[in-house]
Every structure is written in structure tokens, then in C-alpha cells.
């Protein structure tokens, strides 16, 4: 039995994106419900990295907010180390909040431009009352800056005095300030240049092994996911379509969508490569296709796929949500 840090079960979140009721009444519009996350379950082992990968509309950022308790789920629950973060404010959930942190995508929007770096990093320390003494707090800020590769003197500067990569380091220092155990990373390097991305990814890997952190790593970039993840979940229109270990997923993807996604990702050694694209695009998430959401784009789709939502099949240590999964894995169908 592995040591589970985060347990997500049956997580569902719907948004009401209807027009105001007067407009609905006048234009005879029905209510419009967007199911951003649809019955998603996964668990993250302590000290490991679970990556959620998906394109736009896949619901990956909504899952991040749900896991952090910034949004309430419509159904299902998130347990962090056995307790529910979305429970109403109690002493237990306050204590839990300290142990959960986040690294954001946009290093320009995630730091308050009017605050000094030192104040930004010491805010969580102050809020959780970790260092009551101001001098100790300043020393802790210096230690954190050092940990992410910045200088202690940077504490007096403002965010605009730093480059994107350095800002992301400041964001990481803030995330580490409350000594968390679990960090949600929402596209942490997608706003960065590649050479800087490598610095930040390596830093995050080093910190993980140094501090025993657990990551939920959210990304649209398969190359970054391959570099960071232990376990990968592939999302399509709010549903998990395939979950597998990193190696299993990249070496032998099973779900037709995963296969298409892997083929479409540009490769730095794919000179003159031709893509086998399906020509389709992500459908409107408010009116998603019936049955398996991927069926209109899928080469293997049958009548059953159009009607019936596939169940999860457990195959050789991976979970695949596809009617044809067994056949695909056995190699009896060709994509």
C-alpha cells in the first residue's frame, strides 16, 4: 500500500453560464450549464508528481482550484492527507491550508506589483504565525530566497525589477514559505522561455527531492510533463481519459486521444515529420458530444461510442476510458 497524500474522488464541477434570467426569458434561451470537471478521480502518492495534461477546455485549471479549496465541488471530494480542505473554516482546515500551496502560471500577475519581494514572501509566514519575531521572519525570507537561487538583498526590491524566470523563483519561494507538503503547480513554466524553463523545472525537481514535496503538476506541454511526472492523467473535456505511469503513457499510449496528442506534439528531432492529425477541434464544452466525448474525432469510433459513456478499464496498471481499450492494447486494431 503506497502512502497516499492526495485523494480525489468523483470530483465534479458545473458552472452556470446562462445569460441573466430576463434575457433568457425574452430570448427563450435554456439554461446553459458547463460541466468543467466531470467525475474525476485520482490519487497522488506522497513525494511524487502527478501530472494532469490537457488542451484548452479540459478542466485542468478548474481541478487545480478545486483541489486547493478555492472552488467548491458540485460533487465529489478532495482529501489531503485524509482531511477535507473544502470543509468550512475550522482549526483543522486552517492547519491543512498551511500544508497546501500553489505555484502560478503567470509570473507577472502572481506577485503583487506594489509589494516588496520580502513582504510577498513573508506574508504566508505571518498569516500562519510561523515566525512571530520580525527578525526571524527576515532571516527566513533570506533563507527562502537563497533556496530558490536569489540573493537575500533581493527582498527589498519590487517584482518589476526582476525577469520572468526570477519572478517565478519568487513565486516558488512564497509557495515554500509556509513549509507546505503538497504544491499545486498550474502551468508553472508555460510563460517562460525554454532556457529559463529548464532552470525552473530543475529547481522544482531539486526542491521536491530535498523537501519531500508532493506535486500536482498541470500542463498542456507533453514534453514538460514527461520531464516532471511520475504519474500522468490525460484530460479531455473535463473527463480523465487515461491515467498511467509516465513511462507507460509515453512509450505505449492507449487512448486514441492520448495517441493523437503525442503525435501532434512537435519534437525537436522530428525533422520534416508529417502529422496524422484528425482534422478536428475541441468541441463546445457546453454541448459536448454524446457518449465518449472524443468520438467525433476518433478513427475507431463505433455506434456504441456515440451512445454509451465508456467505463474505466484497468489494464496493466493503467486506467483507460475507452470501449476499444483492450483491443488497442492487444494490438488487434490499428490506428
Amino acid at each position: 500500500m503506497t502512502d497516499i497524500m492526495v485523494e480525489v474522488s468523483g470530483l465534479t464541477r458545473r458552472f452556470d453560464v446562462s445569460s441573466p434570467w430576463l434575457n433568457r426569458l425574452l430570448q427563450r434561451e435554456p439554461r446553459r450549464i458547463l460541466t468543467a470537471v466531470d467525475d474525476v478521480s485520482f490519487s497522488i502518492a506522497r513525494g511524487s508528481t502527478y501530472a494532469l495534461v490537457g488542451e484548452s477546455g479540459s478542466g485542468k485549471s478548474t481541478i487545480a482550484k478545486l483541489v486547493l479549496g478555492l472552488l467548491k465541488p458540485t460533487a465529489g471530494q478532495v482529501l489531503v492527507d485524509g482531511s477535507d480542505l473544502s470543509a468550512t473554516a475550522t482549526a483543522a482546515s486552517d492547519a491543512l491550508r498551511r500544508r497546501v500551496q500553489m505555484i502560478f502560471q503567470d509570473p507577472y500577475a502572481s506577485l503583487n506589483p506594489r509589494w516588496r519581494v520580502g513582504d510577498i514572501i513573508s506574508e504566508p509566514i505571518e498569516v500562519f504565525g510561523l515566525e512571530p519575531d520580525a527578525g526571524a521572519r527576515a532571516r527566513r525570507v533570506a533563507e527562502l530566497l537563497d533556496q530558490v537561487g536569489l540573493a537575500a538583498s533581493d527582498a527589498t526590491k519590487f517584482p518589476h525589477q526582476f525577469s520572468g524566470g526570477q519572478r517565478q523563483r519568487i513565486g516558488i519561494a512564497r509557495a515554500l514559505a509556509s513549509r507546505p507538503e503538497f504544491i499545486v503547480c498550474d502551468e508553472p513554466t508555460s510563460a517562460l522561455d525554454v532556457s529559463v524553463q529548464a532552470q525552473v523545472l530543475n529547481l522544482m525537481r531539486d526542491l521536491q527531492s530535498e523537501l519531500g514535496l508532493t506535486y500536482l503538476f498541470i500542463s498542456h506541454d507533453l514534453s514538460v510533463v514527461r520531464y516532471m511526472a511520475d504519474q500522468v492523467g490525460v484530460l479531455y473535456l473535463g473527463r480523465l481519459v487515461e491515467t498511467a505511469t509516465r513511462d507507460a503513457l509515453f512509450e505505449a499510449p492507449c487512448h486514441p486521444y492520448t495517441r493523437m496528442l503525442l503525435d501532434a506534439a512537435p519534437r525537436i528531432d522530428g525533422f520534416g515529420r508529417e502529422h496524422q492529425t484528425d482534422g478536428g477541434e475541441i468541441p463546445d464544452p457546453i454541448n459536448p458530444p454524446s457518449g465518449c466525448h472524443y468520438h467525433p474525432r476518433c478513427a475507431l469510433a463505433t455506434e456504441r461510442c456515440r451512445v454509451e459513456v465508456p467505463a474505466v478499464s484497468n489494464l496493466e496498471g493503467r486506467q483507460v476510458v475507452c470501449h476499444e481499450a483492450t483491443q488497442i492494447l492487444s494490438g488487434s486494431v490499428d490506428l
Binding site: 525554454v194 532556457s195 524553463q197 529548464a198 523545472l201 507533453l222 514534453s223 514538460v224 510533463v225 514527461r226 520531464y227 513511462d247 509515453f250 503525442l262 506534439a265 519534437r267 525537436i268 528531432d269 522530428g270
Partner: peptide, 10 residues
């Protein structure tokens, strides 16, 4: 060398 590749492991 700093670009990760989805098709190979680093």
C-alpha cells in the same frame, strides 16, 4: 539541451 522532448526521456 534545455528543451525537453516529448519523444525521449531526459
Amino acid at each position: 539541451a534545455s528543451t525537453p522532448n516529448p519523444a525521449s526521456d531526459v
